[in-house]
Each structure stands twice: as structure tokens, then as C-alpha cells.
């Protein structure tokens, strides 16, 4: 016979598990666990079948070598909202070493000189997340943008497994860097993959890779930097929408999109966005680029306002203050 409490598999450093179960009319966490440097917190929400979790990292950021592995499950008829608190900062190395980092000797508080030498390639930061959403369940992943600092290397993979009548909203966005420090698109690599499977069939796979292509000796033409390619915008956002709970939101955005008529302009607008339906009828992709992060946030808050019906005004304001 199985022991009554089967031992929960140990989480390795940076690991996390969230499991939301419906219990009568309410949603309860059957699991909510994480290990350093990841931290998951759930504020008390008074709403039926709804739960909010903040995904946090100590110090508000990630450093080279950090590996986050998170698995999330939302049971049928539950609504899980995942948020962050402030943008996720990705450093090349941590300013001031992290004492509890695995492999760091507690005796050497100052990093060996080789770590700060610019010739060394730093280990990349990785974040892998898997989400499973049962029938009539919903996951709204609405974090703040990622900000990669100079020379940072960031890799994020998010995979979503949905049942047929599940709903999904994924917001994935980034800013050009620490603009106050004069950093604009100065990181070395940003890789973000979002893959959506519905009932065992892949319906969308978005892979965004931003890196400076190494100047090539063959090309005699001045190569284009990342900043050249993305100018004049400094914030890029992608939203995936899928499922019954977001149909009216998609329709609202589509109506707005169809009303746009583009006449030739002399210079690029402050903000530009697009909407594409997915091949699978009940999904859509929105992309936004803006010169200011805040204007992109305001636009997103307006465009996704329909989600308020599901999550309520208080929770919605946590995502879009």
C-alpha cells in the first residue's frame, strides 16, 4: 500500500511547484512550494475558484547561472492568476555575491578576479516553466516585463498544456535595459519560447531571440546592431490569448484593430501594435512595441480589460495598476 502522504519529490535550487485544486466552489492550493532563489506567495483572495500567486526572486532579479524550474497546475474550473512584483531584472553577475548560492564558498566573499574580467563568458540564466490547465480551468500569466542588464544572457521557456475548454492568457514582455544607466539593448542575449498545446496538439510556438549578431568578416557592409533593428522602440510585448473565457476580449481587440487605417507617415508612431488570429480559431496573438514601457502597460491594461469579468477589478488592478 502507498503511504498516506507520499513523499513530495525534493525541489532542487530554484525549483517551484504550484498546484491549484477546486474544492467545492473554492480553489485551494494542494501545493505551493519553492526553493531559493525562487519564492512564491499567495495573497488571500475572496473570490470563488480564483487564486493569485506572486512569482518572486530574492533581490528582485536573476543572475547568470540561476536556473528556475517551475511547474504549475490548475484544476478544472479554477482560475489562477500569476503575477510578479516589479520587473524581473537579469544581471550578468550579482552585485555582491549570494551567500547561499550553490557552489559558492562561504569563505570567499569577494568574487575571484576572473569573474569580473570582461573576457569571461558568464553562465546564462535559465527559466523553465510548465503549466497544465484542466478543462474549464484558466491561467492568466501577467508578469511585469523582463529587464536584461548589460551583457546579461537570459533564456526562458514556457510550455502550456491545455485541455480543450481551458483558457489562457500569456503576457511576455521586455524592456531595452536600464535606460537610466544609458543601457539600451545592451544585453548579450534574450531568448523566450512560448509553446501552447491543446489536447496533445501544438497550436502555437513563439520563439523570440534577440542577440547581437556577430559582425561577419564576409559581410563588408556595416552590420546592424540589436538597437538598430529595434529602434525607435524600447519595450516589446507579446500576448497570447486562447479559450472560451477570452473570446470577448479577442473580439474587442479585433474590432479595434480593424478600425485602424494606415496612411503614409513621415516618422514612426509612439506605439505600434498588431493582432493575428492563430490557426486554431479560438486563439490570437497580440504584439505591441512602444517607446515607453508605461504607455505599453497602459495600452495592455485597456486592451485586456475584458479579463476583469473573470478575475474581478481588485485582482485586475494588481496586474495593471
Amino acid at each position: 500500500m502507498q503511504p498516506l502522504h507520499s513523499p513530495i519529490p525534493r525541489l532542487r535550487s530554484g525549483g517551484g511547484r504550484i498546484s491549484l485544486t477546486s474544492y467545492g466552489t473554492s480553489a485551494v492550493f494542494s501545493e505551493l512550494a519553492s526553493t531559493y532563489p525562487l519564492k512564491v506567495l499567495s495573497p488571500r483572495i475572496v473570490a470563488r475558484g480564483l487564486a493569485v500567486v506572486y512569482l518572486l526572486t530574492y533581490g528582485g532579479g536573476l543572475v547568470g547561472g540561476d536556473q528556475i524550474e517551475l511547474s504549475v497546475k490548475a484544476d478544472s474550473k479554477t482560475v489562477l492568476v500569476l503575477l510578479s512584483q516589479g520587473s524581473t531584472k537579469v544581471f550578468k553577475i550579482r552585485p555582491g555575491r549570494r551567500l547561499a548560492s550553490p557552489g559558492v564558498s562561504r569563505h570567499s566573499l569577494t568574487p575571484p578576479t576572473s569573474i569580473i574580467s570582461p573576457l569571461v563568458t558568464y553562465p546564462a540564466t535559465r527559466q523553465n516553466m510548465t503549466f497544465t490547465i484542466a478543462a474549464e480551468g484558466a491561467l492568466f500569466l501577467l508578469p511585469d516585463p523582463v529587464t536584461c542588464f548589460r551583457s546579461a544572457s537570459y533564456n526562458q521557456s514556457q510550455t502550456f498544456y491545455l485541455s480543450k475548454s481551458a483558457s489562457l492568457v500569456v503576457l511576455d514582455w521586455l524592456t531595452s535595459g536600464r535606460m537610466s544607466m544609458g543601457e539600451e539593448w545592451a544585453f548579450s542575449r534574450y531568448y523566450s519560447a512560448n509553446e501552447v498545446w491543446v489536447e496533445g496538439k501544438r497550436i502555437a510556438k513563439d520563439i523570440m531571440l534577440l542577440d547581437d549578431q556577430q559582425p561577419d568578416p564576409i559581410a563588408k557592409i556595416l552590420s546592424r546592431t540589436l538597437a538598430d533593428r529595434l529602434a525607435p522602440y524600447s519595450c516589446y510585448a507579446m500576448v497570447m490569448l486562447f479559450g472560451p473565457l477570452v473570446q470577448s476580449t479577442i473580439q474587442d481587440i479585433a474590432a479595434q484593430f480593424d478600425q485602424i487605417a494606415i496612411f503614409k507617415t513621415k516618422r514612426p508612431a509612439e506605439m505600434v501594435w498588431s493582432l493575428s488570429p492563430m490557426t486554431s480559431e479560438s486563439g490570437a496573438i497580440v504584439r505591441v512595441a512602444g517607446k515607453e514601457t508605461e504607455s505599453v502597460r497602459t495600452w495592455l491594461g485597456q486592451a485586456l480589460l475584458g479579463l476583469q469579468e473573470t478575475v474581478g477589478i481588485d485582482v485586475y488592478r494588481k496586474a495593471f495598476p
Binding site: 533564456n155 521557456s157 519560447a193 531571440l209 533593428r229 505600434v272
Partner: peptide, 22 residues
Amino acid sequence: KILGPANTWPLGEILAARHDLQ
């Protein structure tokens, strides 16, 4: 992550998707 296909120009993607609105 190193050898697979990827979208490297989100600006081009947005502008191309707005083609029909001209």
C-alpha cells in the same frame, strides 16, 4: 535554444502583420 528556428525581429513582425490595414 542554439540551433533551432527563431523570430529575431519583432518590429518587422508587427509591421508585416499590419499590412492589410493600409
